[in-house]
């Protein structure tokens, strides 16, 4: 089975005034379809930068990033956008829901951008997902009427609604209390099992990290110890992911 994400010797520099800030310095890794992968590391280690490269919202300064077989460097803005729309799903640290849209409409939004489904099909899919995240009763609410945990559930539903191959989540629990945070990770894991969706999330919370099948440790823009590190529990889970 081909890797859904394949990163080879990637560098990312941020120009900052006259100096260049190296955020990633030669990172290589590959992610298998169906993985539940956690990227960990201290603040400033390059987690967000790495996720942005995988999420096709940014391109590497050097090295190759292959997402579902597409070299992101060779794609234009349109193609990158479409890749994000169809192949990727995003869960944000601050939930990032559209404030003026209802829960239902927020979840439906990516489907509208895709223009593939009829209104009835869209409604069916959105409703199913809202049941799964436990918010079917709140479909008409505005985000402002929901708690942080509820909002993040909406975000998870929105990320999954297009049935993407990969869902990226940059510190999805950072703005939540620890219990709610764990519930969110549980929900993500459940989705990972049921939908076979690959999840890649970053965190600096050890408890959250412990739910992952595999863990990548970042430090100073490099993978710690110079190579990808697999967690003890990972093997089993990855196998389960592969069937």
């Amino acid at each position: 089975m081909a890797d859904i994400v394949s990163i080879q010797d990637v560098y990312k520099d941020y120009p900052l005034d006259k100096v260049v800030v190296p955020a990633l310095r030669g990172v290589s890794l590959s992610v298998k379809q169906g993985d539940f992968l956690s990227i960990v590391g201290p603040s400033g280690s390059g987690k967000t930068t790495l996720l942005n490269l995988i999420g096709c919202v940014d391109v590497a300064t050097k090295g190759t990033v292959l997402i579902d077989g597409h070299d992101t460097k060779s794609l234009n803005d349109h193609q990158l956008t479409d890749l994000r729309l169809n192949t990727l799903g995003f869960i944000f640290q601050s939930f990032n829901l559209v404030p003026v849209l209802s829960v239902f409409q927020n979840v439906e939004f990516p489907l509208l951008l895709q223009r593939r489904l009829t209104p009835a099909e869209r409604a069916k899919r959105v409703d199913e997902l809202l049941v799964k995240v436990g918010l079917d009763k709140h479909s008409l609410h505005r985000p402002s009427e929901l708690s942080g945990g509820q909002r993040q559930r909406v975000a998870i539903a929105r990320a999954l609604v297009t049935r993407p191959k990969i869902v990226l989540a940059d510190e999805p629990t950072a703005n939540l209390d620890s219990v709610t945070g764990e519930n969110i990770i549980d929900l993500m894991k459940e989705m990972n099992r049921e939908e076979k969706t690959t999840f890649i999330f970053s965190t600096h919370d050890a408890k959250v990290m412990s739910h992952a099948n595999s863990v990548i440790k970042l430090a100073d823009g490099k993978i710690a110890d110079g190579k990808p590190v697999r967690d003890k529990a990972a093997g089993k889970k990855v196998k389960a992911g592969k069937h």
């Binding site: 999420g55 919202v57 803005d77 349109h78 956008t81 479409d82 994000r84 729309l85 169809n86 799903g89 995003f90 944000f92 601050s94 990032n96 559209v98 404030p99 939004f109 990516p110 951008l113 895709q114 929105r158 990320a159 297009t162």
Partner: peptide, 15 residues
């Protein structure tokens, strides 16, 4: 942030 989010989850510039 709202516009960036829309762009991230797949809205084109034209949108």
């Amino acid at each position: 942030r709202e516009i960036g989010t829309m762009r991230a989850i797949g809205a084109r510039k034209g949108f």
